[in-house]
Design a binder for these strands. Structure first.
Lengths: 205, 205, 205, 205
DNA sequence: TATGAATGAGCGTTCATTCAT
DNA sequence: TATGAATGAACGCTCATTCAT
């Protein structure tokens, strides 16, 4: 998914150190935004000098790339498993939402970065995989919703594109306030979100 | 709401030109992000040189300030009217959501900027009013939800803070995809969103 | 001849200032080499800060580009006039050599830079015109030499490619020691060089 | 000739490996220029990491130093033999030119580096021997030319300093295009060059 | 009101060099 | 002998901002 590594002189460096540094970078990117984050800041946080980061990575952008692409790889591992399971539309939605909250739990920083930056990054060829992913995402969710409308599981009186955006946003914005280790587990949050999305917050007449 | 103008040398410039420039600036901020937007880009779009903007504004930040604060002023005019109307909880929520989509329609750029930047701006004293507004916002919505739970309009089995975040985010993220002049009026979008939020997307048993 | 200017926001700046700055830059490039010359050094010499240069030029490389391309433009103006004059081979060579020393006199720095850098610059697309120029150069000189051999003006017992390189280098390396305002005028140097090249330094038997 | 090794910690390394590495370094310096050559590039070419070179050499500069000084040592071995042979001026020039082309053949990279870099290197104390060598060089060639003018072997109507530069440059620039193993042997090239320099390229009247 | 030219701080990046292993 | 990881200084460049005109 990431742009092809050129010669990747740097790619051979010890993978554990890379992970550590990427985790740090992701946190800083998530907290202050990619553009506003200086490479010196990341290095500070890692206890090294700015230049030293370039032993491990080609560029600031390649850190971002690796953060986002490895997140998306994992996300799609989960999604693809759900989609291949042959569930009904409602159960599929439930599983996708649950899986999403699990990803938010595991990759909070990456998700937050994705939320803030993917729109303008998608324009760059290097981040073309973001657009691809978005497309797959849309196909999967919209398709499931349509199946649900067709077989009577979901309401037919709603604009399905609005519904799609509603469900999609509803889930992912959670990354902006979610803190791992909070009082609710991802599964519990997913359960409540699903309850709201599927049945509404109003008491039934 | 904005921090007091220091010199107000610049405040004497013609108000219409200011408006025009702020509209341009807001669009560019919304499209590319505040940090990624150069003052030169705004000037280009306005057909002038970067330095010339400083006749009208103290700084890039003060443009942002004015954009956000004038948006919030208008927003609260609308909200306060709703809250003063003495409606029941459900009707209040409906009115607030409708009002919100109207604001998104009128101030799309400002809303988008607000979404992306308010979190880290709120830390700066100059933008303290963002925090104040958020607080008022929370009080109004959370209070209404609690009233609704108390009088049986809203479900009591949900974590009310989750519900609050759910409704809040659900509405405002719409600014990220909303395009004025699209096929749905703000009121129509509000109606469908409210229908989903209140009654859910699942068909009732 | 230079690579197409992109948008050339900077190209509109006052042409006199540009000339001044390019003259300064050319001198520094010639004295210390392009790579070893820092943009700060040029700025120092011009009495400004490094960043200020970027108001006038896109990049260090574009300064180099402009220096070399405007030199080559002038050079070919002179050469083309000579080649169009319909002179015999010996007179053509004499005129070309004289013209060359005049160019060395007028553009000493540019010629020195050209000597040192053109070989590796020619590989970059932006400097493709260097290769083009070299090709034209070779065609003009080699052709004239061949004409001279054919009509008996030049010796037939020499490897003509060696002769070409001999004459070419002989002339242009002079830029490495030539100082304008020295005791010999360019025309006088040309006369002596031609005398050596054509008749040799040995006394005739 | 090179500056005294400070620590000579590195001097204990196996001399053959040093030679290999210096040959590689010289080729890269010659191809891309000293400044533009990174220590990493040399190491890559040698199949090791950049830091590892520092086991063999004190610094990048000391590689350059060793390349240039050992070339000059060999060159002067040859020159001194010629100068001690008691030949007439014309024969001395012939022998020096021939010797020079032999050195270009054997040390092409070193000669090319010398051509490009010696001018600005000579300013540094460490490379003072370059200036010394240039001085000896000038004395030897200029002296021989003067002897030749005095005894009627060389033309008296030329500015002798111009003649000196002419002959000197004429020979050494050849290093910029010479490729060992080409169709002409160094001796053959020397013969043709001498023929041009001594008798000129024009056909005698 | 706006321009043209400059400032100055800071940014992402490179690279010769060091050093424990 | 060589590696892996880091240093630290410098580099080309960007950009918000200033100010005389």
């Amino acid at each position: 998914m990431p742009a092809a590594k050129k010669k990747s002189t740097t790619a051979s460096a010890s993978p554990e150190r890379r992970r550590e540094l990427l985790t740090i970078a992701a946190d800083v990117f998530a907290a202050h935004g990619y553009n506003a984050t200086t490479v010196r800041r990341i290095a500070d946080e890692a206890g090294m000098l700015a230049g030293s980061l370039y032993y491990h990575f080609d560029s600031k952008e390649s850190m971002l790339d690796e953060i986002l692409s490895s997140f998306l790889t994992e996300l799609w591992d989960g999604y693809d498993a759900v989609l291949a399971a042959g569930l009904g539309p409602r159960e599929t939605i439930e599983a996708l939402v649950t899986e999403s909250f699990r990803e938010i739990d595991r990759h909070r920083a990456a998700v937050a970065i994705y939320q803030k930056e993917s729109k303008h990054l998608a324009a760059q060829p290097r981040f073309g995989y973001l657009t691809d992913s978005q497309q797959k995402f849309k196909t999967a969710w919209l398709g499931t919703l349509e199946r649900g409308v067709a077989d009577g599981a979901f309401r037919a009186d709603l604009d399905i594109r609005l519904t799609y955006r509603f469900v999609r946003d509803t889930v992912w914005v959670a990354a902006s306030w979610y803190r791992p280790g909070g009082q609710h587990s991802p599964e519990e949050i997913a359960r409540q979100y699903l309850s709201m999305v599927l049945d509404g917050i109003a008491v039934r007449a």
